[in-house]
């Protein structure tokens, strides 16, 4: 996992049809695989011209999402996050 490229989900809370789960915003993970491109649902949902975006499967540890005292910190959550929600990040818990 040391060689992984880490990315963080933006912490924003915009209104509208957003498919980035709130519980993952601000959390850091790594890309499990890249999918797409798919039309941006935030535009598609309102009948607007939708931008094509890469869709990332991002893997998070339970420790990152729920805190270091999560009972099984190394279990993981994978979620599909559109590229415009992701920004480069340092590894979680970096010294």
């Amino acid at each position: 996992m040391a060689k992984q490229e880490f990315i963080r989900v933006r912490r924003d809370m915009p209104p509208g049809h957003v498919r980035t789960p709130a519980y993952l915003r601000g959390k850091t993970g790594w890309i499990e695989r890249t999918l797409g491109p798919f039309p941006n649902p935030e535009q598609l949902a309102y009948g607007h011209q939708a931008q094509s975006l890469p869709l990332m499967r991002v893997r998070f540890t339970m420790a990152e999402v729920w805190g270091a005292d999560a009972p099984y910190p190394d279990d993981t959550i994978d979620a599909e996050i559109y590229a415009h929600w992701l920004e480069p990040a340092e590894p979680p818990n970096a010294p």
Binding site: P21, F38, E80
Partner: peptide
Amino acid sequence: PDTTTVRVHDSTADM
């Protein structure tokens, strides 16, 4: 068992 890793997949978008 504790030796098994659980991977949860949240089906949030197109897949």
